[in-house]
Design a protein around this nucleic acid. Sequence first.
DNA 1: CATTATATCTAACAGTTGTTAGGTTGTCAA
DNA 2: TTGACAACCTAACAACTGTTAGATATAATG
Lengths: 201, 201
Amino acid sequence: MNTKEKILDTSLDMFARLGYTAVSIRDICKQVGIKESSVYYHFKNKQSILDELINRFTTIANNMMSQFENGLTDGQGSFSDGFNVVADCFFEQYLMDEFCNKVMRVMLIEQFGNDDMRTIYKEWLLDKPLQIQSSVSKALINFGVIESGDSEYLAVKYYSPIYFYANKWLFSGELTEENKTAFRESAYKHIQNFFMEMGGK
Amino acid sequence: MNTKEKILDTSLDMFARLGYTAVSIRDICKQVGIKESSVYYHFKNKQSILDELINRFTTIANNMMSQFENGLTDGQGSFSDGFNVVADCFFEQYLMDEFCNKVMRVMLIEQFGNDDMRTIYKEWLLDKPLQIQSSVSKALINFGVIESGDSEYLAVKYYSPIYFYANKWLFSGELTEENKTAFRESAYKHIQNFFMEMGGK
DNA sequence: CATTATATCTAACAGTTGTTAGGTTGTCAA
DNA sequence: TTGACAACCTAACAACTGTTAGATATAATG
């Protein structure tokens, strides 16, 4: 791993714990083992370290989104198909992916007092997930797996416990294997319960 | 309003927008109209401004909690009784109360990189609300208003949409009357729906 | 009137912040 | 061997941070 990647890696790690503003260039450099001025050889300024991280995140997240939609249309419309797509794409590759999780933590912390950050936080942790979850419901309604209903409230009923569990297990404290397991158990149980109540087959 | 109260008021207002660490003593003083050193006549240091605000918050919040529990046991066990207690105590006097809302925003922001703050954030925005909501369910089960079920998951099903709506409407952006109304509409609708599905009378 | 307490001020401290100018290596092509 | 470039360094800058010592003004008390 070259110096630029080391800087990005260390920065993200510290940003995710304490926030962008709380971490200084000197903190990062101490950890990487270089002097402050060397950072400015690789990056224009402190902000552009964060920009680079966000850019990489959006690329990955957009990939996940397309994979998600493909997974839904490719499936045979069974319950386990929809379930697996959610679990693989949205849970494992997004919420619990080490890199994505850290970037989302930075968004979570830095959304206050930074309008740009609040915008992308809203986009990637509230609107898009809700939109994704509602597309699952719609797909399964089309396939006749569950009965139709108020699709907006349906999406909230579906997503909000996941959002709650994610905040509890994935975005506070450390992202340990125990916390991941606790999240999976709660979230899986909720999804199964949701589909059962909706008349899922 | 004397100077000490002005300092508290201004500090809370700025802390709630940008976070405790992001706001400097000089920022506060500029707004209040005093010099930096005057703050140290009224407070030991910057931290004790925050401590005072948190103390006042916990007093109010604990009051709300007792009022809540009294409201539940006093009621006749009808749906509207439980509904009104939740709406009055938990929504109006807590989540949407100007002072409480601001303090909770500070907790929300400052929970990262501050272990004490994370502890009280968890207590007042995750554990206690969940505990309160589950006591509503239990009370209404006792009164025979709704049917019994898995009480832990029941509480999550009940509370998580409220938590979701609160994060969307009450804890991001400004706490305007429009946002309050939007929250009320969504949350009330959810509560009614929840009780209907649970077999409420 | 003299004293005391309250509330504010001026001015500075030591430390931290992001950033930059300019010097020092090491590597590779001409 | 010379020159060019990449990758790093030393050392400092101006601005900002929480905090303090000590002076000053106002009002209440003896």
